[in-house]
């Protein structure tokens, strides 16, 4: 501000080149931060559903930005417009950038046409998290579900996205499945496009 002693140089974030995304921080730093996010939100809610919703909201904000960033950096400002295209974008590109690997699986729901599932044996955010018994089916993956919803919504594929634990035989810890249920309009449009 002018007139407060010295003139400050505010740099515009758009003047800086967009990072290449190769920088890293330690997993612990992220885990500490994520733990604070969860703990803070716990103080703001009365029930599990509300807590999941708040984590999802936080994730949504991340997802919306990730979509913009990746479309700009990796896809020359183009984005997927077809259902399978965007799903594989989430499953491969987004996952690889955020979590360092492609998601373990992407499947179509067997019972409903509009449902798809992305599963991960050990979701990064759940790595150091154990759920107390009294919190039932709560899954911190709600944050990742939010990211997925943010990406999909931003790309024009509104959907309801939820995170669930699914026990797997032979594994000590259940895997996390991100269930994506697309809005009706998305499927109608997809059908029209043929």
């Amino acid at each position: 501000m002018i007139g407060v002693g010295k003139i400050k140089q505010y740099s515009n974030v758009l003047d800086k080149p967009v990072s290449k995304g190769k920088q890293e921080v330690s997993l612990s730093a992220f885990a500490f931060l994520f733990s604070e996010l969860v703990q803070y939100n716990q103080t703001q809610v009365d029930n599990i559903a509300e807590l999941e919703r708040r984590l999802e909201d936080a994730g949504y904000a991340v997802g919306a930005r990730v979509l913009e960033l990746l479309c700009h950096r990796d896809k020359g400002n183009r984005r997927e417009t077809r259902l399978l295209g965007i799903l594989s974008f989430v499953h491969s590109t987004v996952w690889k950038v955020l979590f360092g690997k492609v998601a373990d699986s992407l499947e179509k729901g067997t019972e409903h046409e509009d449902e798809y599932m992305i599963s991960e044996k050990e979701l990064l955010v759940n790595r150091f998290i154990s759920i107390p018994k009294d919190m039932g089916t709560f899954n911190c993956g709600a944050f990742v579900a939010g990211i997925v919803r943010g990406v999909l919504d931003g790309a024009g594929f509104p959907a309801v996205v939820t995170a669930h634990f699914v026990p797997v035989e032979g594994l000590l810890r259940p895997r996390t499945t991100i269930l994506i249920k697309f809005a009706e309009e998305v499927l109608k449009r997809e059908a029209r496009l043929g």
Partner: peptide, 15 residues
């Protein structure tokens, strides 16, 4: 073990 700094940055921003 490390994670992408962008995940960290954006998560912090969300907080």
């Amino acid at each position: 073990e490390r994670v992408n700094a962008e995940l960290f940055t954006l998560t912090y921003g969300a907080i």
